[in-house]
Design a protein around this nucleic acid. Structure first.
Lengths: 106, 106
DNA sequence: TCGACTTGCAACCGATTGGTTTCTCAATTA
DNA sequence: TAATTGAGAAACCAATCGGTTGCAAGTCGA
């Protein structure tokens, strides 16, 4: 199935998982302890995150450590970039306006 | 229903709508011309975007102009911020490593 | 070797999603 | 005034989602 990074971060549990493994790689069992859902449900979330390359598996014996692919997060940042340009432009325009008003008061 | 901005941007059609109205306010009819779905389907997307305050309505006669609430987009940027810190730290660490190697070669 | 542990996978279930068609209503225009 | 137009609301539908339980398989320690 074609997975989309924006769909991946839509779920609050998945966002929490991402935040947790951003700090250190974790196993599904360890992750599940942080939520009120079953280990299998966490595994399903991890599968979705893996399918869109947001997460990498590291096999260690019978355990699997999941780690965040931080570079993939940049794709969201890149999409936001077009809007950042807009709000920065508007901020500068507001700044110019305030300066003009200040000038006129003098 | 409680709407979430991350859920709002999960749908590709909604992301396209957001990008369009970021440039200029548009009516549902005008928006629908850009997609292969009915005007009613676009209206449903606009309702979801409105419910999470990503979009503002401006009534003009029988037309309704939809405009992007650009400030709301900052919420996504704020969430990304924690990961931006991580990848910038890693970049600096890599930079330091490269400098060290360069020093040793001298 | 055997039992316990870690994990993924499949089947199932109710709720939600994204789309459609049909309808109603208010605003415009001929 | 009557016909047309722009838009939201409701009912419906198939597909997907997020969760569960149950199971099979590989790994570890006694």
């Amino acid at each position: 199935m074609r997975r989309d990074i924006f769909q991946a971060i839509a779920d609050p549990t998945r966002r929490a998982i991402i935040a947790l493994i951003a700090l250190q790689a974790m196993t599904p069992n360890a992750l599940a302890e942080n939520f009120h859902i079953t280990r299998q449900a966490v595994s399903k979330h991890l599968r979705i995150l893996t399918e869109c390359d947001l997460v990498k598996q590291e096999f260690k014996g019978r355990e699997i450590y999941y780690q965040l692919e931080i570079d993939k997060m940049k794709e969201i940042d890149e999409w936001i970039e077009q809007f950042r340009k807009i709000w920065e432009t508007r901020f500068n325009q507001l700044d110019d306006l305030l300066s003009t008003i200040k000038e006129q008061k003098k």
